[in-house]
Design a protein around this nucleic acid. Structure first.
Lengths: 197, 197, 197, 197
DNA sequence: AGGTAACCGAGACGGTACGTCGTGTCTTTAT
DNA sequence: ATAAAGACACGACGTACCGTCTCGGTTACCT
């Protein structure tokens, strides 16, 4: 009772070496030129492969660049555990702000911006990058609610956006002013609220 | 006592009709095609003008589209005054969310995204669009602080970002889910804060 | 009493079915598209075979198409025998003109034209097609000389060209005007000569 | 009562320098590589112009190459006048045979061959090259008929083909054997006719 | 009134990249 | 060994825009 092989593999198999060369070339060119200046032609030239090979495996420039980017930088930022959830978030936001101010931040901004013209790209960005961050944050939120440090009525979704939204907003509008002081003030403000009580 | 003309104007003056035709064509094509699919060639064809005329007056595609966009949509959203600053913000955020979900929101997202490749564009966006919003909000914040409704130690800058950031973040990553409920939850969360007190 | 194999044949023998499928596909595509639009890729697809199989057995596109063409159309035009050599040639030229005006004529023109870029092809065309015609004609010429109908000093080579040359010239430059009247006038003119005597 | 200018010339006029550079590059590459190996890409590169400039002015590779070829080699072969029309033709055919055996003959064969795939090309070849030859020959034929040297019932069209056809036939099938002896024998045979009289 | 300077439309120009197609070769599994 | 399948590097295709550059022609100011 063996299951029939789900797919008959015929023909020459895909070259792993070529795939790697393409992704590396795409990543390098993205870093050097930015998304809009990167061309398939250029990637093919640097990877020493034919253009058709790229078009065969990636439907769009966006999907190629995203895969190249996440393949290298998909690693999560590790949430620290200090005992205080408030402090955990503060530290996490500082780490994130640091990332966003680095060259990788510029790439992220580029990617997110380019996604506005490319539904595939923004969808992939959400699925592969943001969902991972959201899941990490959700664990901490739950811990904070269980420990009584956070309000029980808190909506995870809005809370996540309240933390990440301002950072990405700055990333896109004023990248240079994502300072540690700003991040501290932001966390404080959001945790405490704006109103008197 | 007329002021002397600051600059000697010789030659044929710029054609106001042509300028208007170009801006209108740019706006229409931006709406129809999005930023990246819009071409100078296309604008010139629709405006029935030469390409050189466009290049003479606008240094880049971004500056042209931004001028076309703000010339039509630069109008501010009027902050309501209900007595309660908290309520004022809630209503204002709802108005903004409504705007961002409309076609104009898509254009704004497009513009903000394109700015990631074009420093001129993002700078102009900040100066001409965001600063106006920031100034509007600042007035309300000050009113709330004076009235005692808001905490006196609040940083205007971070407070503004805490409100606008999540909305723009959503705009760029998940435009369809900018619902009124979401906005209410967001305002509540930010005004009250996340921690127990 | 099997004859001993003249050569040790190891491995899978060449598939006759595949060979036939390739030649048929080549002939059909040649007829449908002409020589230059015919591609090895297309032949392989229609014959349901791998491209390498074609490259293995035919050195060039020309050799493949010629084999496909002559395999189907190699049959000779039968010279009639009316008693008058002059009449024999007239009828023969009419038959040839009829052939050249048909679809096969187009293929011949195509083949002859393509040969200008492909020495192998033109050589094969001469050897497999023209030589057969030349031999047929030579028999009639000899008969005409023996019977006294033709001049004895006649050069076979030039005589053949004088008859076939104009027809092929027309084929290549003005295929539609290869009418029976033209052929009659041509034969008359050549047989009689242009000068007064 | 001046006639209105037939066409209003607007926009930048066509660059004569570029046109010349393209035709020269095309001619050189045609000579170096032959018709089928010549590419528009290559012509553009050698002429230091954009591909679009070529496509703007020539509808096909064939029309470009023909113009390049005839622009250089369109010059007629001067029919000599010896008093004897028969001798005139003999000399003319010798000149033509000489031309066809040269490099230019190869180009002509190439052009005529390529025309079998390209109706535009063959049409242009007929109109620009053959018609000129036909007109030249017609003058001599008429002279010969008037002088009584040629038969009065002679059809110009078939007579022309009877002379040129064999030469072009040889050109395409056996270029190397277009010897002076062959040409003499051909002229003799055609002038005298094949039959006894 | 005439000169002159900047404007304007049209559109040709040298380029770059697009996405597709076909080349001839190579690598796999299957016969 | 031969075959089908199909991936591969390569190169040309014909198109679309880029930003620049002539052209002929049009205002409006300044002698």
């Amino acid at each position: 009772m063996q299951p029939a092989p789900s797919k008959l593999k015929r023909g020459r198999p895909r070259s792993a070496k070529t795939k790697a060369a393409i992704l590396e070339a795409a990543f390098d060119l993205f870093r050097e030129l930015g998304y809009s200046e990167l061309t398939i032609e250029g990637v093919a030239a640097r990877a020493q492969c034919g253009k058709a090979t790229i078009y065969r495996w990636w439907p769009s420039k966006g999907s190629l660049v995203l895969e190249a980017f996440l393949g290298v930088d998909g690693a999560a930022l590790p949430y620290p555990e200090t005992g205080s959830v408030r402090e955990d978030f503060r530290r996490q936001m500082q780490l994130l702000a640091q990332l966003l101010q680095s060259d990788q931040g510029k790439l992220l901004a580029n990617l997110l911006g380019s996604g506005q013209q490319d539904p595939d790209l923004i969808h992939a960005f959400r699925a592969k990058f943001l969902e991972a961050r959201r899941a990490e944050a959700a664990r901490i939120f739950h811990r904070g609610i269980r420990s009584g440090e956070l309000r029980p009525g808190l909506f995870l979704e809005t809370a996540f956006d309240a933390l990440y939204g301002p950072l990405f907003f700055r990333l896109l509008t004023d990248r240079t002013r994502l300072t540690p002081d700003y991040v501290d003030a932001l966390c404080d403000g959001i945790m405490t609220g704006f109103t008197q009580h």
